[in-house]
C-alpha cells in the first residue's frame, strides 16, 4: 500500500512533528477559529451566572461591597489620603481596574488545567481560550466601568467637579497594556503549571500581595517619600494604575518614561509567554 510515487506533489496541509520553531505563531489559524473564540466568550459570560436570580448584577454588587470595605478600612481606620479625589471614586477606580487585571490573570493562568478535558480530545488553536478569557472579562469590566461613570455623575451633582475630558482616550491604550500584561503573565504561569503545580499555589496568595504592592488603595504620591517607594515604582503595574487615575481625574504620577517601562514589560512577558505556550501546548497532555 505504499508504492505510489508522490514525490512530485509533496504538498501537505498539515505536518505534525516533535519540534516546531520556537516562535512560530499561527495567527491565521486563530482567525479561522474566530467563531469558536466568540462562542467561548459567550460561554464564559453566560455560564457564570446561569441559575442565579441577580445574574450579571453580581458584577456590580461585588465592587460596591468592596468599596464600602475599603472606605472603612483604608479611609476611616488607616486614614490613607486619596490624592484629593473623592474616596469612593478613588476606590471604585482602583477596584474596577484591579479586578480586570486579576480576572484576566487568574483566568488565563489555568488555561491548560481547566481545559485539559477538551484539549485532550480535540485540536484547535489553544490560544483561543486565554484570548476568550481576556475578552469575556472585558464585558465584566465594562459593566463595572459604567458603575464608576454613574458614580462620577452622581458626585458631580453633589458638588464634585465633573471630570470628563479628552484624557479619557488614554484609557484605551492603558487598558490594552493592562490586558497584555495579564495575558502574558497568565500564559507563562499556565505553561509552567502543566507540569509543576507549585506556581498555582504561589499565584493564589501572590496576587493578593501584589495588590498591596500596586497603588490600588493608595496613591503613589502618598508613599513617594517613603523608603520602600522604589519597590512600588519597580512594579510595572504602578504606572498603569496611576495612569488610569490621571486619565479619569487628572491626578496621578505618571510619565512617558514610566509608561514605556510598562510597555516594555508587557512586550517581554507576552513574548516569553507566547513562546512558552507554543512549546507547551504540543505535549502538555502528557504531563498535566
Amino acid at each position: 500500500m505504499t508504492e505510489s510515487k508522490d514525490i512530485t506533489t509533496e504538498t501537505w496541509d498539515l505536518e505534525i512533528s516533535p519540534k516546531t520553531g520556537f516562535l512560530k505563531f499561527d495567527f491565521k489559524e486563530i482567525w479561522r477559529y474566530r467563531d469558536l473564540l466568540l462562542l467561548f466568550i459567550k460561554r464564559d459570560f453566560i455560564a457564570q451566572y446561569k441559575q442565579t436570580v441577580l445574574g450579571p448584577l453580581w458584577h456590580l454588587i461585588q465592587p460596591i461591597l468592596t468599596t464600602i470595605m475599603f472606605l472603612l478600612v483604608f479611609g476611616r481606620i488607616a486614614k490613607i489620603p486619596t490624592d484629593g479625589i473623592n474616596p469612593i471614586l478613588f476606590y471604585i477606580t482602583g477596584i474596577t481596574f484591579w479586578n480586570y487585571f486579576t480576572t484576566c490573570f487568574t483566568g488565563t493562568s489555568n488555561t491548560f488545567i481547566a481545559n485539559a478535558s477538551i484539549f485532550g480530545k480535540v485540536y484547535f488553536p489553544r490560544l483561543v481560550t486565554p484570548l476568550a478569557t481576556i475578552a469575556s472579562s472585558l464585558i465584566r469590566f465594562g459593566i463595572q466601568f459604567l458603575l464608576l461613570v454613574a458614580a462620577m455623575v452622581w458626585f458631580s451633582f453633589k458638588g464634585e467637579p465633573l471630570y470628563f475630558s479628552l484624557n479619557w482616550l488614554l484609557l484605551i491604550p492603558l487598558l490594552i497594556l493592562l490586558a497584555g500584561t495579564a495575558l502574558g503573565m497568565g500564559i507563562i504561569v499556565s505553561s509552567l503549571t502543566t507540569k509543576y503545580r507549585d506556581f498555582q499555589v504561589l499565584l493564589s496568595f501572590g496576587l493578593q500581595l501584589l495588590m498591596y504592592g500596586t497603588p490600588v488603595v493608595y496613591s503613589l504620591s502618598y508613599i513617594n517619600t517613603m523608603k520602600f517607594a522604589w519597590l512600588v515604582k519597580l512594579n510595572p503595574l504602578t504606572p498603569l494604575m496611576e495612569g488610569f487615575r490621571y486619565a479619569l481625574f487628572g491626578k496621578g504620577m505618571v510619565t512617558t518614561e514610566l509608561l514605556l517601562y510598562s510597555t516594555g514589560f508587557m512586550l517581554v512577558t507576552l513574548f516569553v509567554g507566547l513562546a512558552l505556550f507554543n512549546k507547551v501546548e504540543k505535549s502538555f497532555m502528557d504531563t498535566v
Binding site: 498539515l14 505534525i16 512533528s17 480535540v122 485540536y123 497532555m285
Partner: peptide, 14 residues
C-alpha cells in the same frame, strides 16, 4: 488528532 505530539517522527496529511 494533534492533542499530543510524537517524540520522534512525523505525520503529514492532506
Amino acid at each position: 488528532s494533534r492533542t499530543t505530539s510524537p517524540t520522534t517522527g512525523s505525520v503529514k496529511a492532506r
